[in-house]
Nucleic acid binder design. Structure first.
Lengths: 345, 345
DNA sequence: ATGAAAGCGCTAACAT
DNA sequence: ATGTTAGCGCTTTCAT
């Protein structure tokens, strides 16, 4: 009976079935005025019967807008980036935007990811966890990120090399987080705080380290060279072994929880009790943080708020409407658990 | 000087600048034959000069294809789903497809996510971590998932209620993983194995539990009722307290590493040594697994292989080309660490 | 309150 | 080897 139709139904098909003009169908679908209630019903019924779905390609072609936001994220399952991605998607959908993702990593750099987003058509781009691409190229120090200046871009901290009239910056850089973690440890009475940093290429890692450094300076505490990890527990473990071997180390701030886990393990193996001998603070508040041995004191960010705030500004920029001022950093929250305590007397 | 052009350059603009017809531009851009090398150069130069980018909306409108794959994923930063997502994106890009994501969760069910994908225009849909929507609705037991039968759908295990001529199923259900974990413990000499399952609504959780049950049955080991968690360390901890209180428990298989972390903690608090008194196996091999106390024996899946295999089949279905047969489950791999040992004599 | 016609940027037939 | 024409499905003037 029913032959497999090759082409999905168009608004013309709906119009024919409803016995009206194609334009009237368009009116109904877009909720424009000047349509009789009776006609509107008839059109909607026809659309439902045919399983009609608006062709976004045609719509986008005409409007020159895609109603899609593209996100460049880091190709990994790290807790922070993943959580932010989820929050961004929810927010985008809420604002009526479709959501496209391009990951970086494994040779596919930022420029590549942006290019693939632009190629598919997006109204704006979010750069989620920028790394410093410019130190990639040993020859000329790499090159700046070139994004079509006509496409609005959102990032959560200023990205050197990423510039333009339609670049909007807001959110949570991590400086505040680094500062809070360090102040917490200093406040407990530790003479200074050691830092296991994220990879230097990540701006987020630099920000957290900067917060740490600023807090030390403000308190007049001696600054130690940071140990650099790669966000992984393995790298935290390596750093932890170094720290465990140094009897003067009593307080450590790891730039994420995963590395903190590695530090905890190294400390345990070296027989250095946490928090009795050494205090440890992580960052992210991964679900497992509360169930480690000991439960980890850490810093938590409100990704929902960050996404909401950022996309609201981005949407305003897309519409070229005023759009409130970009707030500075959204605050991070310290979650105190059992891995921190005053230093042994 | 340069006035802000509102409309991005079209192939007509390129043609004008290069002094050729618009069709010739199209030819060059699509690598079609019958273009002089000299003309080709001229066109490419013009395109570069104008910063021309092909308008995908127009292209999609004409072709009736979007060259985009949509993925429905679970709105969380759980390690498994996140890793699969990353792998799927890489694969999709490799195959020349743009990548759209819609998350489920928080009221936005599977149907909703699929709808939003279809609305934006995708050539196919991947259902990444399906849950049983049908028990959502207490009235009529929920309803089947309705997906336009003309859009190919890929899932990694059969999804009841999701049916149609263009549904392709392949990958790794988790049955094999559950079986391997259980056999490992049984092989060490444990009389039986307890199970901390994922939420029953997740098909993945049911599969892992089934593998566990099958392995027990095959070995003639007594089956215990599974304790159900929600993938979180907190839920694993709750289950772990129950298990720790039962002196007959000597071997536990947790359906993911996060829950295993909770179990480990509960055991530690109860003074039950791992692995001397109780062995624990997790699943996922999260990066932290090797750095827990003790390092966790777990099951690892090859998400890259799963994504590659699945998307290859999906691409074939999109092109309506034969496309090899759907293989069964891809094998999971046991990673033995220190959380498992033979039972105490 | 409704319809007709034009055009968005592209690709596919069909010339030349 | 290159150009002309038509048309994808939609929205937007402009008529009626």
């Amino acid at each position: 009976m029913s032959d497999a139709r090759r082409r999905p139904p168009s608004s013309t098909d709906v119009a024919a079935l409803a016995g009206v003009s194609q334009k009237t169908v368009s009116r109904v679908l877009n909720g424009e005025p000047y349509v009789t209630e009776e006609v509107r019903e008839r059109v909607l019924a026809a659309a439902r019967e045919l399983g009609y779905r608006r062709n976004t390609a045609a719509r986008a072609l005409h409007l020159g807008r895609f109603h899609r936001i593209g996100v460049v994220s880091i190709g990994s399952s790290l807790y922070g980036p993943s959580s932010l991605l989820v929050a961004l998607e929810r927010q985008a959908r809420e604002l009526g935007y479709a959501f496209a993702v391009a990951y970086t990593g494994e040779g596919a750099g930022l420029t590549n990811a942006v290019e693939s987003l632009l190629a598919q058509g997006v109204d704006a781009i979010v750069v989620s966890d920028p790394i410093d691409d410019r130190i990639d190229d040993p020859i000329d120090g790499g090159q700046d990120l070139r994004i079509d200046p006509d496409v609005p871009v959102l990032s959560f901290r200023p990205v050197p090399g990423l510039d333009g009239p339609r670049v909007v910056v807001t959110g949570a850089s991590g400086v505040d987080a680094g500062r809070q973690a360090t102040e917490h440890l200093l406040g407990l009475g530790h003479a200074t705080v050691w830092h296991v940093a994220g990879p230097h290429r990540w701006w987020a890692a630099r920000d957290r380290a900067r917060g740490w450094r600023e807090a030390l300076a403000a308190a007049g505490a001696p600054e130690q060279p940071a140990l650099e990890g790669d966000w992984s527990p393995a790298s935290g473990y390596a750093a932890g072994r170094v720290l465990a071997a140094n009897p003067r180390v009593t307080a450590v701030f790891a730039a994420n929880d995963d590395m903190a886990i590695g530090v905890l393990r190294a400390l345990a193996e070296a027989g250095r009790a946490v928090p009795e001998e050494v205090s440890v603070v992580g960052m992210d508040d991964i679900p497992a943080a509360a169930y480690l041995s000991p439960p980890l004191t850490t810093i938590r960010q409100d990704f929902e708020a960050i996404a909401r705030h950022g996309l609201a500004l981005l949407a305003a920029e897309i519409e070229r409407s005023p759009g409130g001022p970009a707030l500075g950093d959204l605050p991070a929250h310290l979650v105190v658990r059992r891995s921190t305590a005053p230093p042994a007397k």
